[in-house]
Structure formats: C-alpha cells, structure tokens
Amino acid sequence: MDAFDTLGLEPRFDLDLAEVEARHLALSATLHPDRFAAAGPSERRMSLGKAIEVNDAWRVLRCPVRRAESLLVRYGVPVGETLEPRPSQDLLIEMLDVREELAGARRAKDKAALTRLATQMRAKEAATTVALTHGFSTANGQTAKLEALLPELGKLRYFRRFFEELDAIEDELLS
C-alpha cells in the first residue's frame, strides 16, 4: 500500500493539494486516539499504526519530489542513488554556478541578489513541474516513458537543495 492508496487518492502527479489535506484531516479525525479510548489494546494499537501511516502518506504526497518518487516506484521504476542516471553536465554546471552566486550573496548580505536568484530558480522549478505533470499524465504507466522522467526528478531535487540553502540564508540574514 503506497501513499496514494493510504489516502484513497488517484495516483497522479498534479494532485489537488487541498484535497490531499482534506483526506488527511478526515482520516486523521476517524483515527484519533480519543475515539479509541474505550477500545481494547490491539484495536488501539492498530488505529495508532494507521494514524502514523496516514501522516506519512500526507508528508509524501504534499512534497513534489517524494510524490514523483512514489509514483515511479508504484509503476515499477526504482529510484535512489545508483539506480538513476547521472545528472547532465549542463545541470551540474548550472547548479554549481547558482550555488556559488548564492554563497556570494550570503557573504555580501545582498538581499536583492537573493530575491533575484529565488525568482530565477522558481521559474526553473515551475518549468520542471510542468514537464513532470505532462510526463506522468502521458506515460500511462509505460516503463520507458516513466524512466525518461528521472532526469526531471533529479532537477527537482537539485532545486529543492537550492531552496533549502536559500531558506537557511534568509533566516540567518533576518536574525
């Protein structure tokens, strides 16, 4: 049972996140420990286990990287280190440059540069999301077409790292 099954949602990349949230809340409410206060120990344990599963599924589906990974695994395309193609030199050069610019903006405490870099990377992230949405919706579960999406997923992970670093720098400059 994967995250889509757990929350009873159709397996697709362009999920309606409001619906994911609503399913998570509805299921969590039915599994709340208070409802099982009078139940026997095994039933309490089972409902707690199910509640944890629902929480985990929600965390997977609301994150685009993990959602894509979950979809690929569902259709038999393994993901993870050593299982995926190497990133292209173009992507590596681009990411090295942008991370160096980010480090430079941090040293210079240049907030305008941070905003500019964030905008630039948000646009790239959006384009990759569009590519993945299109890719998943046209793959129809075909392995070759799904495997072709791995480089796009790789990009999304690189962008995520960038934004994590950006968030940390913004916090640092605010404090």
């Binding site: 993901v79 993870g80 190497r86 030199q89 590596l92 690189y158 995520r160």
Partner: peptide, 13 residues
C-alpha cells in the same frame, strides 16, 4: 571533474 548525485542534489567539482 564535475560530478553529482541525483538522489540527494549534491554537486562536486
């Protein structure tokens, strides 16, 4: 040499 790990988003030169 410029290499990267796609699963974690690392880049190494």
């Amino acid at each position: 040499g410029l290499v990267g790990a796609p699963a974690c988003g690392d880049v190494m030169r």
